[in-house]
Design a protein around this nucleic acid. Structure first.
Length: 276
DNA sequence: AGTCTTGTTCGACT
DNA sequence: CAGTCGAACAAGAC
Protein backbone atom coordinates (compact mmCIF):
# COMPACT_ATOMS: atom_id res chain seq x y z
CA UNK A 1 0.00 0.00 0.00
CA UNK A 2 2.34 2.74 1.07
CA UNK A 3 4.35 4.37 -1.69
CA UNK A 4 6.82 7.24 -1.49
CA UNK A 5 4.37 9.94 -0.28
CA UNK A 6 2.90 7.66 2.38
CA UNK A 7 6.30 6.47 3.61
CA UNK A 8 7.62 10.04 3.73
CA UNK A 9 4.51 11.08 5.67
CA UNK A 10 5.27 8.36 8.23
CA UNK A 11 8.91 9.48 8.47
CA UNK A 12 7.84 13.10 8.97
CA UNK A 13 5.42 12.04 11.70
CA UNK A 14 8.10 10.00 13.46
CA UNK A 15 10.43 12.98 13.42
CA UNK A 16 7.66 15.27 14.68
CA UNK A 17 7.07 12.79 17.51
CA UNK A 18 10.65 13.42 18.61
CA UNK A 19 12.11 9.95 18.19
CA UNK A 20 15.57 11.29 17.38
CA UNK A 21 17.71 11.20 20.51
CA UNK A 22 15.67 8.47 22.18
CA UNK A 23 17.34 5.27 23.36
CA UNK A 24 16.37 1.62 22.78
CA UNK A 25 15.46 -0.26 25.95
CA UNK A 26 14.00 -3.41 24.40
CA UNK A 27 13.30 -5.19 21.11
CA UNK A 28 10.53 -7.75 20.64
CA UNK A 29 9.28 -9.65 17.62
CA UNK A 30 6.08 -11.71 17.58
CA UNK A 31 6.12 -13.01 14.00
CA UNK A 32 9.44 -14.57 13.06
CA UNK A 33 9.35 -13.69 9.37
CA UNK A 34 8.77 -9.99 10.08
CA UNK A 35 12.36 -9.65 11.31
CA UNK A 36 13.83 -10.66 7.99
CA UNK A 37 17.61 -10.85 8.23
CA UNK A 38 18.38 -11.38 11.93
CA UNK A 39 16.97 -13.22 14.91
CA UNK A 40 15.21 -11.32 17.66
CA UNK A 41 18.10 -12.10 19.99
CA UNK A 42 20.67 -10.69 17.59
CA UNK A 43 18.58 -7.61 16.82
CA UNK A 44 18.17 -6.99 20.52
CA UNK A 45 21.86 -7.45 21.17
CA UNK A 46 22.75 -4.96 18.44
CA UNK A 47 20.24 -2.23 19.30
CA UNK A 48 19.95 -2.25 23.09
CA UNK A 49 21.13 1.04 24.54
CA UNK A 50 21.69 2.63 21.13
CA UNK A 51 20.46 6.14 20.47
CA UNK A 52 18.40 7.10 17.40
CA UNK A 53 20.39 9.67 15.42
CA UNK A 54 18.12 10.04 12.39
CA UNK A 55 14.85 8.83 10.87
CA UNK A 56 14.81 8.98 7.08
CA UNK A 57 13.47 7.39 3.90
CA UNK A 58 15.05 5.61 0.92
CA UNK A 59 12.54 4.48 -1.71
CA UNK A 60 9.71 2.90 0.27
CA UNK A 61 12.02 2.02 3.16
CA UNK A 62 11.97 3.76 6.54
CA UNK A 63 15.47 4.02 8.00
CA UNK A 64 16.19 4.43 11.71
CA UNK A 65 19.86 5.24 12.12
CA UNK A 66 21.54 4.70 15.47
CA UNK A 67 24.77 5.91 16.93
CA UNK A 68 27.42 3.24 16.50
CA UNK A 69 26.84 2.17 12.88
CA UNK A 70 23.53 0.40 13.29
CA UNK A 71 20.32 0.93 11.36
CA UNK A 72 16.85 -0.52 11.50
CA UNK A 73 15.16 -0.58 8.10
CA UNK A 74 11.39 -1.08 7.95
CA UNK A 75 9.47 -1.80 4.76
CA UNK A 76 5.71 -1.52 5.21
CA UNK A 77 4.90 -3.52 2.03
CA UNK A 78 1.12 -3.82 1.63
CA UNK A 79 -0.43 -3.25 5.03
CA UNK A 80 2.28 -2.18 7.46
CA UNK A 81 1.76 0.73 9.83
CA UNK A 82 3.83 2.30 12.60
CA UNK A 83 2.30 3.60 15.79
CA UNK A 84 3.71 5.05 18.97
CA UNK A 85 2.04 3.77 22.11
CA UNK A 86 2.55 3.59 25.84
CA UNK A 87 4.00 0.28 26.93
CA UNK A 88 1.01 -0.19 29.22
CA UNK A 89 -1.36 -0.42 26.25
CA UNK A 90 -2.34 -4.00 25.38
CA UNK A 91 -0.60 -5.52 22.38
CA UNK A 92 -2.87 -5.76 19.37
CA UNK A 93 -3.24 -8.92 17.33
CA UNK A 94 -1.31 -7.61 14.33
CA UNK A 95 1.49 -5.81 16.16
CA UNK A 96 4.43 -8.00 15.13
CA UNK A 97 7.47 -5.95 16.13
CA UNK A 98 7.94 -3.58 19.06
CA UNK A 99 10.85 -1.27 19.75
CA UNK A 100 10.76 0.05 23.31
CA UNK A 101 12.27 3.48 23.88
CA UNK A 102 13.36 5.28 27.03
CA UNK A 103 11.29 8.45 26.56
CA UNK A 104 8.74 7.91 23.79
CA UNK A 105 7.12 4.66 24.83
CA UNK A 106 6.97 1.98 22.16
CA UNK A 107 7.24 2.06 18.40
CA UNK A 108 4.90 -0.69 17.22
CA UNK A 109 4.87 -2.23 13.76
CA UNK A 110 1.31 -3.25 12.92
CA UNK A 111 0.91 -5.40 9.80
CA UNK A 112 -2.28 -7.36 9.11
CA UNK A 113 -1.02 -9.14 6.04
CA UNK A 114 2.44 -9.87 7.46
CA UNK A 115 4.20 -8.93 4.20
CA UNK A 116 6.16 -6.15 5.89
CA UNK A 117 9.82 -6.58 6.80
CA UNK A 118 12.21 -5.27 9.44
CA UNK A 119 15.96 -5.48 8.83
CA UNK A 120 18.97 -4.85 11.04
CA UNK A 121 21.57 -3.22 8.80
CA UNK A 122 25.14 -2.05 9.33
CA UNK A 123 26.02 -0.91 5.83
CA UNK A 124 23.14 1.01 4.25
CA UNK A 125 24.97 1.59 0.96
CA UNK A 126 25.30 -2.10 0.23
CA UNK A 127 21.79 -2.80 1.55
CA UNK A 128 20.33 -0.28 -0.91
CA UNK A 129 22.78 -1.09 -3.68
CA UNK A 130 20.14 -2.25 -6.16
CA UNK A 131 17.62 0.47 -5.38
CA UNK A 132 16.93 2.92 -8.21
CA UNK A 133 16.94 6.70 -8.44
CA UNK A 134 14.94 8.90 -6.05
CA UNK A 135 12.27 10.59 -8.21
CA UNK A 136 12.18 13.76 -6.10
CA UNK A 137 15.93 14.28 -6.09
CA UNK A 138 17.47 16.65 -8.58
CA UNK A 139 19.42 14.00 -10.51
CA UNK A 140 16.06 12.58 -11.67
CA UNK A 141 15.64 14.63 -14.84
CA UNK A 142 13.79 14.22 -18.12
CA UNK A 143 17.16 13.55 -19.80
CA UNK A 144 17.90 10.78 -17.29
CA UNK A 145 14.44 9.32 -17.80
CA UNK A 146 14.59 9.42 -21.59
CA UNK A 147 18.05 7.87 -21.69
CA UNK A 148 17.17 5.08 -19.28
CA UNK A 149 13.76 4.33 -20.81
CA UNK A 150 15.58 3.71 -24.06
CA UNK A 151 18.14 1.45 -22.39
CA UNK A 152 15.25 -0.99 -21.76
CA UNK A 153 12.53 -2.53 -23.82
CA UNK A 154 9.74 -3.10 -21.36
CA UNK A 155 6.16 -1.99 -20.93
CA UNK A 156 6.32 1.44 -19.33
CA UNK A 157 4.13 0.65 -16.33
CA UNK A 158 5.97 -2.43 -15.03
CA UNK A 159 9.25 -0.59 -15.59
CA UNK A 160 8.10 2.39 -13.51
CA UNK A 161 7.04 -0.03 -10.76
CA UNK A 162 10.49 -1.66 -10.77
CA UNK A 163 12.21 -0.38 -7.61
CA UNK A 164 15.65 -0.95 -9.11
CA UNK A 165 14.71 1.56 -11.83
CA UNK A 166 12.97 4.29 -9.83
CA UNK A 167 12.59 3.93 -6.05
CA UNK A 168 9.28 4.75 -4.42
CA UNK A 169 6.64 4.50 -7.12
CA UNK A 170 3.78 2.04 -6.67
CA UNK A 171 0.54 1.15 -8.39
CA UNK A 172 -1.40 4.28 -7.42
CA UNK A 173 1.12 6.95 -8.38
CA UNK A 174 2.22 5.15 -11.56
CA UNK A 175 -1.36 5.04 -12.87
CA UNK A 176 -1.77 8.69 -11.92
CA UNK A 177 1.52 9.78 -13.49
CA UNK A 178 0.86 7.92 -16.76
CA UNK A 179 -2.61 9.47 -16.98
CA UNK A 180 -1.19 12.91 -16.25
CA UNK A 181 1.45 12.50 -18.96
CA UNK A 182 -1.13 10.97 -21.35
CA UNK A 183 0.93 7.81 -21.89
CA UNK A 184 -0.69 4.39 -22.15
CA UNK A 185 0.68 1.90 -19.54
CA UNK A 186 1.45 -0.71 -22.19
CA UNK A 187 3.71 1.54 -24.28
CA UNK A 188 7.17 0.11 -24.79
CA UNK A 189 9.71 2.11 -22.79
CA UNK A 190 11.91 2.67 -25.84
CA UNK A 191 8.99 4.18 -27.77
CA UNK A 192 8.65 7.13 -25.37
CA UNK A 193 9.76 10.28 -27.17
CA UNK A 194 11.93 13.00 -25.71
CA UNK A 195 8.88 15.25 -25.32
CA UNK A 196 6.90 12.47 -23.64
CA UNK A 197 9.83 11.76 -21.29
CA UNK A 198 9.81 15.40 -20.29
CA UNK A 199 6.12 15.36 -19.45
CA UNK A 200 6.38 11.96 -17.74
CA UNK A 201 9.21 13.13 -15.48
CA UNK A 202 7.19 16.24 -14.62
CA UNK A 203 4.03 14.18 -14.02
CA UNK A 204 5.85 11.75 -11.71
CA UNK A 205 7.11 14.64 -9.59
CA UNK A 206 3.73 16.35 -9.70
CA UNK A 207 1.68 13.37 -8.46
CA UNK A 208 4.24 12.48 -5.78
CA UNK A 209 4.43 16.05 -4.47
CA UNK A 210 0.65 16.30 -4.44
CA UNK A 211 0.43 13.00 -2.53
CA UNK A 212 3.00 14.33 -0.09
CA UNK A 213 1.13 17.60 0.38
CA UNK A 214 -2.04 15.62 1.11
CA UNK A 215 -0.08 13.40 3.53
CA UNK A 216 -0.69 10.23 1.57
CA UNK A 217 -3.54 8.28 -0.01
CA UNK A 218 -5.99 6.36 2.16
CA UNK A 219 -8.55 4.34 0.22
CA UNK A 220 -11.71 3.13 1.90
CA UNK A 221 -11.92 2.36 5.59
CA UNK A 222 -10.36 -1.10 5.84
CA UNK A 223 -7.73 -2.07 8.38
CA UNK A 224 -5.20 -2.73 5.66
CA UNK A 225 -5.35 0.82 4.32
CA UNK A 226 -2.82 3.54 4.89
CA UNK A 227 -2.83 5.30 8.23
CA UNK A 228 0.06 7.40 9.42
CA UNK A 229 1.62 7.33 12.86
CA UNK A 230 -1.18 8.93 14.85
CA UNK A 231 -3.70 6.75 12.94
CA UNK A 232 -4.31 9.71 10.66
CA UNK A 233 -5.73 9.17 7.18
CA UNK A 234 -4.17 10.66 4.04
CA UNK A 235 -6.33 13.07 2.06
CA UNK A 236 -4.95 12.32 -1.39
CA UNK A 237 -7.71 9.93 -2.51
CA UNK A 238 -9.88 12.88 -3.59
CA UNK A 239 -7.03 14.09 -5.80
CA UNK A 240 -6.74 10.80 -7.72
CA UNK A 241 -7.81 11.14 -11.36
CA UNK A 242 -7.98 7.50 -12.52
CA UNK A 243 -6.96 5.12 -9.75
CA UNK A 244 -10.03 3.05 -8.78
CA UNK A 245 -12.17 5.41 -10.83
CA UNK A 246 -13.02 2.91 -13.56
CA UNK A 247 -16.54 3.59 -14.85
CA UNK A 248 -16.25 7.29 -14.07
CA UNK A 249 -15.62 9.93 -16.74
CA UNK A 250 -12.03 10.95 -17.42
CA UNK A 251 -11.54 14.41 -15.85
CA UNK A 252 -9.70 15.53 -18.99
CA UNK A 253 -11.78 14.23 -21.90
CA UNK A 254 -14.95 12.70 -20.41
CA UNK A 255 -14.32 9.24 -21.84
CA UNK A 256 -15.12 6.40 -19.43
CA UNK A 257 -12.06 5.26 -17.44
CA UNK A 258 -11.42 1.56 -17.83
CA UNK A 259 -9.56 -1.03 -15.82
CA UNK A 260 -7.20 -3.60 -17.30
CA UNK A 261 -4.36 -5.85 -16.17
CA UNK A 262 -0.81 -4.79 -17.05
CA UNK A 263 2.13 -6.71 -15.66
CA UNK A 264 -0.27 -8.62 -13.40
CA UNK A 265 -1.41 -5.40 -11.74
CA UNK A 266 -4.79 -3.72 -11.86
CA UNK A 267 -4.36 -0.69 -14.11
CA UNK A 268 -6.63 2.30 -14.61
CA UNK A 269 -6.53 4.08 -17.91
CA UNK A 270 -8.36 6.50 -20.17
CA UNK A 271 -8.09 4.82 -23.55
CA UNK A 272 -9.00 8.05 -25.30
CA UNK A 273 -6.33 10.41 -24.03
CA UNK A 274 -3.56 7.98 -23.05
CA UNK A 275 -2.08 7.11 -26.40
CA UNK A 276 -0.85 3.62 -27.22
C1' DA B 1 -18.19 -18.70 -1.98
C1' DG B 2 -15.28 -16.51 -4.85
C1' DT B 3 -12.46 -12.74 -6.28
C1' DC B 4 -9.67 -8.97 -5.49
C1' DT B 5 -5.85 -6.21 -3.29
C1' DT B 6 -1.76 0.01 -2.61
C1' DG B 7 4.53 -4.86 -2.65
C1' DT B 8 8.38 -7.79 -3.58
C1' DT B 9 10.90 -11.97 -4.84
C1' DC B 10 11.81 -16.30 -7.00
C1' DG B 11 11.86 -19.79 -10.48
C1' DA B 12 10.23 -21.30 -14.98
C1' DC B 13 9.74 -20.14 -19.45
C1' DT B 14 10.36 -17.64 -24.06
C1' DC C 1 21.24 -11.92 -20.86
C1' DA C 2 16.52 -9.61 -21.24
C1' DG C 3 11.98 -9.86 -20.45
C1' DT C 4 7.41 -12.05 -19.14
C1' DC C 5 4.53 -14.73 -16.28
C1' DG C 6 2.61 -17.26 -12.29
C1' DA C 7 3.13 -18.33 -7.71
C1' DA C 8 4.12 -17.40 -3.08
C1' DC C 9 3.78 -14.71 1.15
C1' DA C 10 -1.24 -13.69 4.40
C1' DA C 11 -5.39 -11.50 5.74
C1' DG C 12 -9.28 -8.86 5.01
C1' DA C 13 -12.64 -6.31 2.00
C1' DC C 14 -16.27 -6.62 -1.12
Amino acid sequence: MPELPEVQTVVDDLNAAGLVGDVVTDVACYWTRTLANVTQVECQKRLMGKQISQVSRRGKNIVFSFTGEENLVIHLRMSGRLHIKESSQPKEKHEHFILSLKKSGQLRFHDTRKFGKVYCVKDLDSFFEKLGIEPLEKDFTSAWLHRNLHAKKRKIKPLLLDQSFIAGLGNIYVDEALWDAQIHPERSSDSISKEESTSLAASIKKVLRRGLKNMGTTLGTGKGNFYSVASRRGRNSDALKVFRRNGEPCPRCGNVISKMIVGQRGTHVCNNCQTV
